[in-house]
Design a protein around this nucleic acid. Structure first.
Lengths: 201, 201, 201, 201
DNA sequence: TAGTAATCGAGACGGTACGTCGGGTCTTCGA
DNA sequence: TCGAAGACCCGACGTACCGTCTCGATTACTA
């Protein structure tokens, strides 16, 4: 979780009601009017919460939205294990596509990613809170596949992960249409093929 | 080029001096204080140019910076053709890494990408002016390699391009360290291996 | 007039419309809801003027109200000269009583005086812009009376002025009922008697 | 004493420690940083006392300060009786000058007077607790002088009091330098001269 | 070679949101 | 069970930029 830099407020006294209202308001505003209209002021107004309270618990509106999205998506991607690594990776990647294009989480995450580019702290939090856990699941699944002989023991797993996630962020960053399900399948197939192919030259 | 929406002031009366000063100021500000401190007001002040003048010729600070970056990077990536497609792709990708990490163009492009996420128009321009031309070069080079038999005739070239560009944008978007030269080579090798491997299942 | 401390804005470009609207709004608010509800924010809202514009031309709300009051009272106290100094002084003092108890200028001036107690700058301005000119008129009138033999040539005029103004500010400061017309006459008579009496012991 | 409006917590269980700490903190803050920095929050922080506790016993920071000042000045002006009314009045007025210019009580009383202008209740308390008692002493002393034939039997004593106190509040209200000892003497002499002079016209 | 019409600098303007501060109320927790 | 600690809602603060809008004062094309 993100906490502001100043002397920590006592979080046991935190009002759960305010917290929920804030996150909900942020998400609502983002969905209705787009990330640009998400404003600490607007969130406060909508949530019936004071600005001070928001600033007490989050450093930026990006952080608020990140928490909101996290809450939203929390454990909604239990990594599957059907026994077929290719299928499972497809499922996982598709869930990321889904995140980007979801009507409520999508715009929010897009806004967060925009802010990440000039907010070091938020970047760190996004990674720790969001990306790394997901990636860890992928690794775990891949390693299991390796043990079962579905992947060669010397396969460059980190490389695979980057090649799988990369195109999604690439398309998203440049506002290109996200890959369809078929395209995702092809991508995964492509990457896995390389993983399994013998190193050539 | 980006032009504002209002009735075009389109004229040759434009002051070249103002144009240059504006672009330079924008770039300087971005380099010195980061994209966050790039502001129409600040640009105007630094450039000794009226805000109105800026708004007359650009719709957004993102547009200003994009022009500045374009001017900076113009034709600095003549796509090489050494005869070895793998080597050439490495060179090309490395040049993109270089762009991201260049002390002046890097922060500027980062800022632009941040704005692209909530500025449809800017997104279009970035693609048309920046990305598509580069990608076109890659395609052209790849097709030539195909003709020369370095790549199988049924290779999925668009897939390859995305797999090559993707990880860079992925890392950049999440503020992770950009790949080293060796890593780039490995990436290219990986992607090409898949391209050349026979479709399995 | 009061001007803010920062680099002076070009006052030739000042919008007369904004100036008038601001002063009127300030006065209105003060009359309607009392000085406590006079707020830069409220003034701006009521006047249809941006806060920045107010801050550009005045340093505090006290300064705004002072200008408003000044404008209101400007030359509304042309010092009379009936030939009888006692009568003229009564008239003048009565006009000050009137100022304090006027429905619109009264609350405003009260608020200003409250702020004067912790705002050195405003204090200076109030004196220069308001008090000193009035006092100067009294002096001038008294000196004329002196020349005409209505007052002894060695009369302590500054003393007289303080004794005349003093009780008004005393009563006002402590929220006591302001002197009636008769009381003012008695006061003036009292002070003048001393002025004319031969120094005793 | 001032008590808050809500249902009196009236109890002997009041913590004397908190009371003293609050008053001391208020006075200290006022002395060190001026009345403007005296804040319930600041007092609470400095005194190690809860805001709630302050609100329980005082309605306003002005009330706190008034109590503090009262405690400070309590019976520090035992009205003298040297037998010479002029001298005694000088001494008394001088003590008021002293109050205004005292390093700790001065700023505090100034702050209180500032608040009196928009706080009816505080005004009443200041008068009852502070001004009226002092004025009563002056009256008493003057009446004694009258009986002893030092003042004419028909002298307008209330007038005299106002003329004596007035200039001090006048100067204080407008932030002008307070009268020196000599000036005070002259003032008293002036007022007494009128008191003793036969009514003229 | 003057007019004349646009751009230019400067910066004031109405706005919106910022992040902070203090007011006064209410809750929690430790002694 | 009281009071310190302090979280809460609220509203105002003074600042920063936004994008629009006059202003003269240069330009640089037209007539």
């Amino acid at each position: 979780m993100i906490t502001p830099s100043e002397s920590a407020p006592n979080s046991r006294r935190r009002s759960e009601r305010s917290r929920r209202a804030t996150l909900a308001a942020a998400l609502d505003l983002c969905t209705e009017n787009g990330y640009g209209k998400v404003t600490i002021e607007a969130i406060a107004g909508r949530a019936g919460v004071s600005k001070k309270t928001i600033y007490r618990w989050w450093p930026t509106k990006g952080a608020v939205l990140l928490d909101a999205v996290t809450e939203l998506v929390v454990s909604d991607t239990p990594f599957p294990d059907t026994g077929d690594i290719d299928v499972d990776l497809c499922t996982h990647i598709a869930s990321l596509v889904h995140l980007f294009s979801a009507p409520v989480a999508g715009p929010a995450y897009t806004g967060i990613l925009s802010e990440v580019l000039h907010d070091e702290r938020l970047a760190r939090t996004v990674n720790e809170q969001f990306v790394i856990p997901r990636v860890a699941l992928v690794y775990a699944r891949m390693r299991r596949a390796q043990e079962q002989g579905q992947l060669p023991p010397d396969a460059d797993l980190p490389m695979a992960v980057e090649l799988l996630y990369g195109p999604l962020y690439y398309r998203h960053a440049l506002r290109r249409p996200l890959p369809t399900e078929e395209r995702v399948e092809a991508m995964v197939a492509h990457v896995m093929r390389a993983l399994r192919a013998p190193a050539s030259s």
